[in-house]
Amino acid sequence: MSEVKQHLNRREFFSYLSVAWITFSAACAGLLSLAFRFSYPNVNFEPEMDFLAGTTSDYEEGVDERWKNGFGVWMVKQEGRLVALSNICTHLGCIPTWMPAELKFKCPCHGSGYYMSGINFEGPAPRPLERYKINLTPEGKIKVDKTKVYRYEKGQWDNPNSFIQV
């Protein structure tokens, strides 16, 4: 008479145990990562990232502030180039103020200062202001696209998309 084996031996017990623990940990990790993913919404209702900014003839030499409040962009015309300069301080994301008398951008949070070109020269800002993608539509309108940024320290300010020759 052969006896039906009813008990696990030691080795089997431990292999079942480790499978159980691995499954349990994996399930916990899965739930945690789902909860984590939950905190990142798929859709978010933030302002448009691109806009039409008139024609090149609208701008005079210097800093133009008309798009600052709506889109967070300064249009700077200097040395034959028109660029769309981000108004977000590279230090901690405050909004610098354009000071026409001193010809500089000055950040109210920690006092970073930038030249008209966007290059930082004082205060704690680690790098120059960013420039946004800017080009002309077939109708001759200026289009600023904030999804693409050009950074000076990476040598991207010579990229033809980062300025308009005027």
Partner: peptide
């Protein structure tokens, strides 16, 4: 969100950190 007051300060108990930001980069001081 388009206009920052001047000076823009953190709550007072974090102003020590904000003062540190003058000397250190955000990833260090913050």
């Amino acid at each position: 969100p388009t206009w920052a007051p001047n000076p823009a300060k953190a709550p007072w108990y974090f102003l020590g950190l904000q003062e540190m930001l003058v000397y250190f980069d955000p990833w260090m001081a913050g």
